[in-house]
Design a protein around this nucleic acid. Structure first.
Lengths: 140, 140
DNA sequence: CTTGACCTTCCCATTATGGGAAGGATTAGG
DNA sequence: CCTAATCCTTCCCATAATGGGAAGGTCAAG
């Protein structure tokens, strides 16, 4: 199977398939004419990678998961550990984003949002790091 | 003021200050010896940028916000619109992450996480895109 | 005058992805 | 059998924002 078909069947672009090969994530056999050649199991691997990517794992993590998948005797503990770490990472990032959203919502709530120019949002951006001096005017 | 002091006072690294100048976000005057020279208002601008970055705005958005800050007659509506868009963007991304976390938690909950090798997490990664055939074994 | 702490520019790396060019291979239609 | 379209190949570039580090100029303190 040519790279184009492998791409269609796996949902991974041909560009990315070549890239994954370049970084050593996957391998590909070549035909006499130099074309890469893929079979069903290659497509399965690509689908596996795609699934991990869709779930937010990095290619590095995808690589580890792939190794675990290939090792039929791996303890499931290792897989679960990677998944749990990723969950914690996502939850930490969500907490950070939530804090930012709270801040921005508060600011936006106090902004008229009309033709008037006074704006507590910009005031905050300008004053956030200042200790006690009067509210900064836009310099220059 | 040298770039090092501007960096300390603004919380923006010297490296980034130079980069912001390179992409046209800020400007800097030079002294006779070629050193960049900053004053209080430059520091204020850097602090403003830092605040917007901390709140997750892109440098592109930071640029727009900076322009609005400098334009004392801008309608606050425009600022609020940018902020609201950013809030929506963050909320959309959080929803996506939350869905991923839900999926992963469900998978992890069903994984023994011990010495046994069978693992529903990897099973899902391998089977997610398949229609009806039996669960895939790791190819090759 | 030397030494150390600055500053300058320039290049490289990161992460994952896409765009596009130049040129060779294959395939379908006539 | 020839030609055009559609593949494939490699190579280079760009993205966003940041840091690392080298080579070399400058400045201030001793």
């Amino acid at each position: 199977m040519n790279i184009g078909d492998a791409a269609k069947r796996s949902g991974v672009s041909a560009k990315m398939i070549r890239y994954y090969e370049e970084i050593g994530l996957i391998k590909a056999s070549r035909r006499a004419n130099g074309y890469r050649d893929y079979d069903e199991s290659d497509v399965s691997v690509l689908q596996f990678i795609r699934r991990t990517r869709d779930l937010g794992f990095s290619l590095d993590e995808a690589s580890s998961l792939l190794a675990l998948w290939r090792d039929r005797k791996r303890p499931s503990r290792e897989v679960k550990r990677l998944a749990s770490q990723h969950i914690e990472d996502l939850e930490r990032r969500m907490r950070e984003m939530r804090a930012v959203v709270r801040t921005l919502k508060t600011l936006a709530d106090h902004c008229h949002g009309d033709e008037r120019s006074d704006c507590p949002i910009l005031d905050d951006f300008a004053a956030a790091t200042m200790k006690k001096s009067a509210r900064k005017r836009p310099p220059a």
